[in-house]
């Protein structure tokens, strides 16, 4: 069991010792169901910290902002940022390390294990408890969550409210950390790619209909990109007129930008946008599910990334986020890589 008290103790300790400049963790939301990020600078503030299966956010995304901020500072504070990381979040850290976006000494990782469960899906939970305020979420160690609301306690089978990704997660404990809270309990999952295989088993036209219906909904709000810890590029190739254009950018320079994707949220552009994103995340996505969670239109974005995760595993024996020293999926090859699709 991860004890919140232990977490607070560790957090307090490193703040007291000035080991970190601040800690990013979770705190209760004032109005929402799920906790929100907490930025804690003072040892006294650690009391705000919470940890339970409602802590869904992948906080590694905040390292992107942190880095942007730091590069602008004249005399940056070189101390690491303390960060609470779950299994999936820790794999994101490994990718950021692999891509040299951060250095190991930039972060102090408070690893928390999901210990046989995972985190909850807000939408699923809301449906179950019908708008009541959640006071406490516990796991009964048997496959049920005990949810305490004003109305009392309800027992809900884990399967029914766990986030989709957690249902398919087989490494639900941190793979990189400075302190580890909880057990490294490995979970056995029969088929982590079950949902993907379901789509694969459809006919080409059925798959097309499925995706057309889903992606036509996209309004190109880019929420998926904004929450993704891997979408840290200063300028996204799918939308080249974003960050790197400044007041000094000349018309000529603008003409030098390629428009792979048009801005308008029409079907063809939505497809290209999401495919570009998926292909750029191949071998990098660690399935934290943030894109899907953030999508206001409930587009099952995870499927696109999961599909390539599955192919990377099956075709190339590649798994993302377990080894920060391995070369990335597309910057290496094996002589025996399959080529049965090539004439």
């Amino acid at each position: 069991m991860v004890s919140l008290e232990d977490l607070k103790k560790e957090a307090k300790q490193i703040l007291k010792e000035n080991k970190v400049k601040y800690i990013i963790g979770y705190k209760k939301s004032t109005n929402g169901l799920m906790p929100v990020p907490a930025f804690i600078k003072e040892p006294e503030e650690v009391e705000k910290l919470v940890w339970d299966p409602t802590c869904v956010f992948n906080l590694t995304r905040y390292l992107v902002d942190e880095k942007r901020r730091k590069t602008k500072e004249k005399e940056p504070d070189e101390r690491p940022v303390g960060l609470v990381v779950k299994g999936c979040d820790s794999r994101a850290i490994n990718i950021l390390l692999q891509e040299k976006f951060i250095n190991r000494e930039d972060v102090y990782l408070l690893g928390v294990s999901c210990e046989n469960t995972g985190v909850l899906d807000e939408k699923k939970l809301t449906k179950k408890i019908k708008g009541e305020k959640v006071k406490k979420v516990e796991f009964d160690e048997k496959d049920n969550f005990i949810i305490t609301t004003q109305e009392g306690k309800t027992k809900i089978p884990a399967k029914e409210i766990l986030a989709n990704r957690c249902l398919e997660c087989k490494a639900n404990f941190p793979v990189i950390y400075d302190v580890l809270l909880g057990e490294k309990a490995k979970r056995s999952i029969d088929n982590p790619f079950e949902s993907i295989e379901k789509i694969e088993s459809l006919s080409t036209e059925e798959r097309w209909t499925f995706w057309k219906k889903q992606l036509d909904k996209c309004i190109r709000c880019y929420a998926c990109r904004s929450v993704c810890p891997m979408c840290y590029c200063d300028e996204c190739v799918a939308d080249t007129i974003s960050f790197a254009v400044t007041a000094d950018t000349t018309a000529e320079e603008k003409a030098q930008k390629i428009k792979w994707v048009e801005k308008s949220p029409v079907s063809s552009e939505n497809f290209i946008y999401h495919m570009v994103r998926a292909i750029h995340l191949a071998g990098r996505c660690i399935d934290c599910g943030e894109c899907e969670r953030a999508c206001p239109l409930d587009i099952p974005l995870r499927f696109l990334n999961r599909k390539l995760e599955k192919e990377a595993k099956e075709l190339f024996g590649f798994e993302a986020g377990f080894d920060p020293d391995q070369p990335s999926l597309i910057s290496c090859f094996k002589d025996e890589d399959p080529e049965d699709f090539i004439r």
Partner: peptide, 24 residues
Amino acid sequence: VNLCTGCGMCVHVCPYDSLSLKDG
């Protein structure tokens, strides 16, 4: 250099070792 994030993927793939990372 405005777009490069210094991930080093190109460095790894270049068959001629013509790339390196300098100041990220």
